[in-house]
């Protein structure tokens, strides 16, 4: 490992000051990406700032703004949270399938977001819930829509000295639900060939789609919203045909590469299929048959 110093601030102010230190400073949450990257010299550091002891970064609570998830809160806690399971079901899906149980017990949602892998499992669902990233710097905080947070593989809008403090997910309306599915060749412990999250809000009597959000993983340099699919869905009446059209439209937002995990054509087909499946899961969760 490179030779770095380590600090574990207990307050947000201390964390902001340490993150503003000179040299290469890395925020440490669960460490399941960062420590491996440091060991294999894929990232370097002069100072590693462990953010897990800052109470604000461990938040997991609901207020008038919605659900607050502190950036260092581990996936297991989110996966088992009652509010998440009731209102943000797709997030319960994604936090329960990252790596293994051992990884979920350490890995933080904020770390998964800031690592900015196109295949990150938690991100698509956060995008469908229109999460807001609260970014902390030495001079205060700024809010960024999570969809605008990613610049490329491993690259985000975070500037020198800044770190993700928390994510805020607005409270979803009644008669809405979300879901996340990914495809991997094994049953568990793998990286998504493609992943899709859907969120849908329907009128229970007419089954009209009032709002739809679709987001994709592993099919572009960053996680992406499938806006054409959302347009197809909104205003339509939930049906197999509508979801089939949405699946086809979602493919328009996918610009995958061919690599060891799958070909571009295969990934596009997965986007189509997973979009339809996640929409059907959403309807089941709302309790309306299609």
């Amino acid at each position: 490992m490179p030779n770095f110093d380590y600090a574990a601030p207990a307050t947000l102010a201390e964390a902001a000051e340490l993150m503003g230190s000179s040299g290469t400073v890395r925020a440490l949450a669960g460490g399941t990406d960062l420590i491996d990257q440091l060991k294999s010299n894929r990232r370097n550091a002069d100072l590693v700032v462990d953010l897990k002891r800052v109470p604000e970064l461990q938040r997991l609570e609901v207020d008038a703004e919605g659900l607050h998830i502190g950036a260092a809160r581990c996936c297991s806690d989110v996966h088992h949270d009652a509010t998440v399971n009731a209102l943000y079901q797709g997030l319960a899906d994604s936090t329960g399938l990252i790596g293994s149980v051992q990884i979920q017990n350490r890995a933080a949602i904020g770390g998964n977001v800031c690592n900015a892998a196109p295949s990150a499992d938690t991100t698509p669902n956060l995008l469908t819930h229109e999460a807001i990233a609260v970014i902390r710097g030495e001079s205060g905080t700024r809010n960024v829509d999570l969809v605008d947070f990613f610049l490329g593989p491993g690259q985000t809008v975070l500037q020198q000295g800044e770190f993700l403090q928390e994510l805020i997910l607005p409270t979803p309306p009644e008669n809405s639900a979300s879901a996340y599915l990914r495809f991997i060749p094994r049953n568990e412990m793998d990286i998504a060939v493609a992943g899709v999250s859907s969120f849908i809000h329907v009128d229970p009597s007419s089954r009209k789609v009032l709002k739809a959000r679709i987001a994709l993983a592993s099919v572009a340099p960053t996680p992406v919203r499938a806006r054409q699919a959302e347009t197809v869905l909104e205003g339509g009446v939930a049906s197999e045909e509508l979801f089939s059209n949405a699946g086809a439209a979602a493919v328009e937002s996918a610009t995958p590469i061919t690599d060891v995990r799958g070909s571009a054509e295969y990934r596009k087909e997965l986007v189509n299929v997973l979009t339809q499946r996640t929409l059907n899961i959403c309807m089941e969760r709302i309790g309306i048959s299609v």
Binding site: G31, D36, G99
Partner: peptide
Amino acid sequence: NGNCGACTVLMDGTTACSCLVL
């Protein structure tokens, strides 16, 4: 690197790969 789980320990009662903990 956190794939094999051989180094799993309990930290405050939950499992962790001790190779990925400082």
